[in-house]
Nucleic acid binder design. Structure first.
Lengths: 218, 218
DNA sequence: TTTTTCACCGATAGTACTATCGGTGAAATT
DNA sequence: AATTTCACCGATAGTACTATCGGTGAAAAA
């Protein structure tokens, strides 16, 4: 092996990274209930008691996991914004859906963990998951406004939020289907997402649907 | 109090029901990690050891919870089918979205538990949650086919599944938003769901979109 | 009335995990 | 070279939960 001798701080940092990597793997495979100091330490190749050299307690590990996941997410969103700006209009539109899908596929374990934490009230990661969803929603809402959604009235803005929320969940659902092998062609997934959003855009730009004047009971 | 004297089997059945009710409450509030025999028994007002009079072990309780949730869901879906058949076309369309939403609002704790279990590999309820999602998807796919989605080719059928999957997740997401108070008007939620699905229907019935002939890479 | 059944109880053995403590040897510092 | 630092170790106290066991009293059966 090359470079066997590491400085003490380098070795510690490496061990810490091993712990976090092991924690993500366990979190993905066994859920939060399976994430014990015993298992994480063993998976990282150190004694259980040495876990506390790196983290004050179990809770601090979870906080570190959330931080790291958030960091990775922000990087992905920066990248997505950049690419979308560079690309043209129609192409940028497809990218707006493809890039998040690709990001999910790059780190599916992180995505799955987030999906789980989203609805788990006893998870320290729940707050992170909710903030993540909100951030992605805001990201999307800006794109949709640029696409032509009206944003004048209070009603319009709430509807925009609902649509962004919807497209977010659609993206997640399609990603799950893709990861489970049900929708193997990612371009087809993008097609469906585009159809959903474009269809919705068109339906909502037309002032009223076809069922009633506005909506029957206010 | 009236009818204080219950037969032994009646009293036992009542205690069992108290246990299940307590279990659902704890599952909703604290997640599956908080669902211990200690807490459930205490919440139901019996000794921890007496838990085992009613259930072989902790796992059997979870199975019972899944069974009960499934039973309630099937009843809801029967009801929805019935109402949709009775109602006319345009009205039935709105109902197809409103009825599941109302069912969710009737038992939000059950819904939340399902959402959580859906992505939790160590949950005995995961299988139930996945089957529930699949059943609802099938239910919806039939409705969509009736609405005019093409179902001839393999490609069409997969796309139909994707759309059903999508509408399912949209319904869930809107329900969450409604339960969290972000989308207080249920009719508006139905509007958005209708717009999504009708828009998608229209976009997909037209053979190709506007970005490319079919989809670039096959 | 006498006997049996059984839902419930308290106590407890066994298990798994958290977090602390003193010890150790190699890296870092002096 | 002598000393200090500290990442890691094994041992262990403390905690929470699961599941079993023998006992109890009232309902049910005889």
């Amino acid at each position: 092996m090359a470079g066997t001798s590491l400085s003490r701080s380098e070795a510690k940092e490496l061990t810490r990274r091993r712990l976090i990597r092991a924690a993500f793997a366990i979190l993905d495979e066994e859920g939060e209930a399976g994430l014990t100091t015993v298992k994480v330490a063993k998976a990282a190749g150190i004694a259980q008691s040495s876990f506390y050299v790196h983290f004050k307690d179990r809770h601090e590990l979870l906080r570190a996991l959330g931080d790291q996941a958030g960091e990775r997410l922000r990087a992905t969103m920066r990248e997505a914004r950049l690419k979308a700006h560079v690309a043209g209009d129609a192409r940028g539109h497809r990218d707006a859906f493809r890039i998040p899908l690709e990001a999910i596929c790059r780190h599916p374990e992180l995505f799955r963990i987030g999906m789980r934490a989203r609805h788990d009230p006893c998870s320290p990661l729940q707050e992170f998951a909710i903030q993540t969803a909100a951030a992605y929603r805001a990201h999307l809402a800006a794109d949709l406004a640029a696409m032509g959604f009206p944003t004048e009235s209070e009603h319009d803005r709430r509807r925009l939020e609902m649509v962004a929320d919807g497209i977010n969940s659609l993206t997640n659902t399609m990603a799950v289907g893709h990861l489970e092998g049900r929708y193997p062609d990612l371009e087809e997934v993008v097609d469906v997402l585009v159809a959903f959003s474009k269809g919705c855009l068109r339906a909502l730009r037309a002032p009223a649907g076809r069922d009633g004047a506005d909506h029957p009971q206010g």
